[in-house]
């Protein structure tokens, strides 16, 4: 369990501090205006910084998506481990799939396979709990949870099988 220490910085924002498994000390300041500062500290002296990186709001967004998308699917993997019989899977919508350019609802995944599509990953973007009207494109990755057989049926359906 990672121990994330949260400190209010009045007038500035919030500072999050953590020590990695390797013993590196890291602090992230999320500024009220949207920018972020990341600082790494000397292992022996927590009052000496080894470097500070300043990110503006856009850069922060890119970095958050980069770190967030794989994390999200990892969480579902963890979740499915906790419920016996529940599995999760990632399915790519391939070019030529019958659902390329069609709304998600048309896959009728829930009705026909019993699987829930919990996230839609498109490049660096993640759409959590996508709705039936969200349109799929080739290259999108669907994150779904369901039974092993249901997931198999879903994979086949997305590839153009029955």
């Amino acid at each position: 369990m990672v121990d994330l220490e949260e400190t209010l910085l009045p007038g500035v924002g919030v500072r999050y501090g953590l020590t990695t498994r390797d013993g590196d000390r890291l602090a992230v300041v999320v500024r009220r205006e949207g920018g972020v500062e990341v600082a790494v500290y000397d292992r022996r002296d927590p009052d000496r910084t080894r470097g500070v990186i300043r990110l503006d709001a856009d850069e922060t967004g890119v970095l958050a998506e980069l770190l967030g998308a794989p994390r999200l699917t990892q969480r579902f993997v963890d979740l499915s481990r906790e419920v016996p019989g529940l599995e999760s899977g990632r399915f790519t919508v391939r070019p030529g799939s019958p659902f390329d350019g069609r709304p998600l609802g048309e896959t009728r995944a829930r009705t026909l396979t019993g699987c829930s599509i919990v996230a839609l990953v498109r490049a660096a973007d993640v759409v959590p709990s996508p709705g039936p009207a969200d349109v799929l494109h080739a290259g999108d990755v669907l994150v779904a949870i369901g039974s092993a057989s249901g997931l198999g049926q879903l994979a086949a359906r997305l590839d153009g099988g029955s």
């Binding site: 910085l9 500035v12 924002g13 500072r15 602090a27 300041v29 500062e37 500070v52």
Partner: peptide
Amino acid sequence: GRLANRET
């Protein structure tokens, strides 16, 4: 660049 420092 001291916003993240412990004394801040």
